[in-house]
Design a protein around this nucleic acid. Structure first.
Length: 271
DNA sequence: CCCGTCTGAATTCAAGTCAG
DNA sequence: CTGACTTGAATTCAGACGGG
């Protein structure tokens, strides 16, 4: 039993070691800590291509905890062994790999702010779930996510990625439609002054939809005939098989609606 | 190896807006 | 009037780098 010191009452969380460490143990432990420090500093260096440094869309969308733990294992073998031992990783489960990945991410983020990959992912998860400012603040203090203001920056970066995709598609010769959807409204002030006027506000959502089937060869100079006079069957050139297949599809849709909307038919659902 | 400076990114702060 | 939110500017931080 370790002897209690006079001020032990003021240290409620005093660590009680079963065996008092010898001077050799301490110097050995100091050596391990120094090695861990060197390993982690190595990851933080700019020329080390750590996964944690990147925040590209591809990295974010293809992220896996296994890959990150593999990086830890390769770049920081001693740190990995220590953390794996603490987590009892030999009983390897998916949840433990994810936990180790998070721990590694938090440690590196606290050492170097540029290594915020895990925090980017968590910030987006919080954004998707509609977390409020307080949630961001509390998790940010734990090193789990960024401050809330960063979510806009990350979303902008993700948006830029889609612009790159558009450039790729256009270069490949694909055509697209530019879709605009707008909403207009008036914002009226309580007291109108020269510097406080009513506002007419217009918000527009935009998107590009690429054509799966090219229609650039079709004539679009003028309508070929009016819709009222058009024979749809002749236009789409339905053969007997197509017409029969279409009839079957309509029957299935009608049956589904009947089962859903009329309770008396619900017993037919399982048929 | 130490120290000062640079750099890039995150965080904090302050001002303004808005809804309840 | 208050609290939550947004936004841009200022500040902070830690590693990189170069000179002595």
């Amino acid at each position: 039993m370790p002897q209690s010191t006079p001020d032990s009452a003021s240290q409620p969380f005093q660590i009680i070691l079963p065996v008092q460490p010898t001077r050799t143990d301490e110097s050995f432990f100091k050596g391990i800590l120094e090695k861990i420090n060197v390993e982690l500093r190595g990851v933080a260096r700019g020329d080390t291509n750590s996964m944690l440094r990147s925040r590209s869309f591809d990295r974010l969308s293809n992220f896996s905890d296994e890959q990150l733990v593999e990086e830890l294992k390769t770049m920081c073998p001693i740190t990995y062994k220590l953390l794996a031992c603490m987590l009892e990783l030999e009983n390897c489960s998916e949840k433990k790999i994810a936990a180790l990945s998070l721990i590694y991410g938090v440690i590196m983020f606290k050492r170097c702010k540029e290594l915020g990959f895990i925090q980017s992912i968590n910030t987006i998860i919080l954004s998707d779930s509609g977390a409020n400012t307080e949630v961001y603040e509390r998790f940010n203090k734990l090193g789990i996510c960024f401050e809330k203001t960063m979510k806009y920056k990350i979303q902008d970066e993700i948006g830029t990625h889609f612009l790159d995709k558009v450039v790729e598609q256009v270069k490949a010769g694909n055509t697209f439609s530019f879709v605009l959807d707008n909403i207009d409204w008036e914002v009226k002030v309580h007291e109108m002054r020269s510097d406080n006027q009513n506002q007419s506000v217009h918000a527009v959502a935009t998107s590009l939809v690429f054509d799966r089937v090219s229609c650039s060869h079709l004539d679009d100079t003028e309508p070929q005939r009016s819709l009222a006079e058009t024979d749809i069957k002749q236009l789409v050139e339905l053969n007997v098989n197509d017409a029969e297949q279409q009839r079957q599809s309509y029957k299935m849709i009608a049956a589904k609606i009947l089962c859903e909307q009329i309770p008396a038919f619900s017993f037919l659902k399982t048929l």
